[in-house]
Design a protein around this nucleic acid. Structure first.
Lengths: 345, 345
DNA sequence: CTGAAAGCGCTTACAG
DNA sequence: CTGAAAGCGCTTACAG
């Protein structure tokens, strides 16, 4: 019994302990752990053994303080329970892990004040960079608060007047694909239900949609353009408005999964059969839309790629590569299922 | 032009700067910021003004290093893109924010080695506590690695042989409710499709289900008990097996949303109508099950409450309240929709 | 009550 | 190449 009993809650080993254990200076060990200065094999073996023996783990706070960076990025995001954001977060987290970056979750509930607060974590050096997902891009306060932050990447939507690099899906292309698909299937009275007028993701989808309509040379009527928040409530309201129309549209382009959920709820209640009675193209395609009644045709966003690319770019910014703050558009895809009924002309 | 031009990227203000600006010692300002020592109103006004003026933000790493804690917890979780985990994470994040705790995301992809790695973040003091969500509770390595970690709360499932406090939904109750509901609707040939045999969440659901069956005094037959991972693939396999049965079960209790997705995919392909041809009760109820075809009856887990309660408990542990490491079971709820067909006896 | 000073555990410019 | 030492920016026991 010579001290072999497992002393519980022993003080954590520090670099000093490791150094002492193998008769080196802390500087040497630190350098070995970081810069990979070349050391004789025998020495490195000794260090490795000591680390294992003492269960040494570098204190990340000391490291961060000394280095002035934390190897952690923040993900500013409205609500992780929303399937779209959840998938985006999953893409981000995967890439972050690959880059050796920790990921701090910064949920905003879409409140601008919280979004701005989190910018403070950046300037306070809590995190090295920020991935910024917001639905408040039309709020001038945001662009203002963003000024001077040089390691922020906007994801999924941009902020009016901000110059930060931005990664988004090609909303315009998506709107165009959706509109074209409906037109090709013979629809001539089409409604649009989408996000807030002020958001670029939203403007893009509507713009592309209109482009498809315009291409049909006046043969197609847009019976309604209902813009509102990316929420199922907006979808429910929109559904009620559209059902009241006389005559009804034969097809709807619904520019978000979240909105489509609300819309479908009302249709179901009212006995309106999607596909048979009214055709629908959705947007996002993160939920299990293939299991819906009927399986929903949708524009699929490249969520995983969006997340990965955002991490890549913020990583570059942190390293100091001052790339031009360009906006990157990632391509979307039309996923055809059964919610669009071909109409005879 | 007396230095009034907005020098960009100015060094961040420190506590020292603030102290100097108002002619106090750093100790005084630090105490004011933390302990709320009483200071004359005039003084605190001066401090507040200086902080605003200098845009002072405490350096969290210095604080963490000095304090030996980070006011951050980690959420160890298989995959944030899974709707169930996403909802759980949302509950956790909300509560964490209320307690003033940062939330570090620790995704494991259900790999035990990664789960164990994250335990190192705890012992390395990167985070003050860990919320641990795992589907590998039957892996002895996990219980071993967990030993000595005193600020870990297990969420959603437990770990065999671990003594950490645990917050789970009442799976047994859920299984019982599901089984009883099917029996009450006249079903006599019922199948069970659930999670891995080794997991307690899974054992609970099956146990409760069997309890309901037993209560029917032999009038009900369990035609199959298919256990496997909580994955849609397992659901697809199970669906194929069940469809091959002769005669088929009239009802299935599917003990997870994820599994039910796979099951429904196959049923849809095969033209089997849920509700009409075969009744289904699901478990979790986080997806938009009400929009499925048909809307799915399910046992709803109290995800938000699970997350909140877990944060409360880890917070207590961090404070040092050494509560007994009890397991808490939160009640579930039967949500009746349209996937269970009443059978005439 | 208050301030000077030590200490948290790293990293790295600096001198040998 | 190597080590002693300063420094990162806080908190708080200690002495006045």
């Amino acid at each position: 019994m010579t001290g072999k009993q497992d002393e519980p809650a022993r003080r954590n080993a520090t670099l000093k302990d490791v150094a002492a254990a193998c008769g080196l200076s802390v500087a040497a060990v630190s350098r070995y752990l970081n810069h990979s200065i070349k050391l004789p094999r025998a020495t490195t073996d000794r260090i490795d053994a000591a680390i294992r023996e003492l269960r040494y783990q570098p204190n990340p706070h000391a490291r961060s303080l000394s280095l002035g960076r934390s190897e952690t990025i923040g993900l500013v995001i409205p609500d992780i329970a929303n399937p779209y954001f959840a998938h985006l977060a999953a893409g981000v987290e995967r890439a972050a892990a690959e880059f050796g970056l920790g990921l701090l979750l910064c949920p905003t509930l879409s409140r601008t004040d919280r979004e701005i607060d989190y910018l403070g974590r950046l300037s306070g050096r809590h995190v090295d960079g920020l991935l910024f997902v917001t639905n408040n891009g039309d709020d001038p306060a945001l662009a203002l608060a963003l000024k001077g932050s040089d390691t922020v990447v906007l994801v999924d939507d941009d902020i009016d007047g901000a110059t930060a690099p931005t990664i988004m899906a090609d909303s315009d292309q998506g709107g165009f694909l959706a509109g074209s698909h409906l037109i090709e299937n013979g629809h001539r009275r089409i409604a649009y239900v989408g996000g807030p007028a002020g958001l670029s993701s939203s403007r893009g989808r509507l713009g592309g949609f209109r482009r498809a309509i315009a291409k049909a040379n006046g043969s197609v009527t847009v019976v309604a353009e209902l813009q509102g928040p990316y929420s199922s409530e907006h979808g429910r309201n929109a559904a009620n408005q559209l059902l009241a129309l006389e005559p009804r549209p034969t097809a709807i382009f619904v520019a978000s999964d979240e909105i489509v959920l609300g819309l479908l709820t009302v249709f179901k209640q009212q006995g309106v059969k999607v596909g048979a009675d009214i055709s629908v193209v959705a947007f996002d395609d993160v939920g299990p839309l293939e299991l819906f009644d009927p399986p929903l045709t949708a524009i699929r966003q490249p969520v995983a790629a969006l997340g990965r690319r955002a991490v890549e770019r913020v990583f570059s910014l942190i390293k100091g590569d001052s790339l031009a703050p360009v906006t990157e558009l990632l391509p979307v895809e039309l996923i055809i299922r059964s919610s669009v009924k071909p109409l005879h002309r």
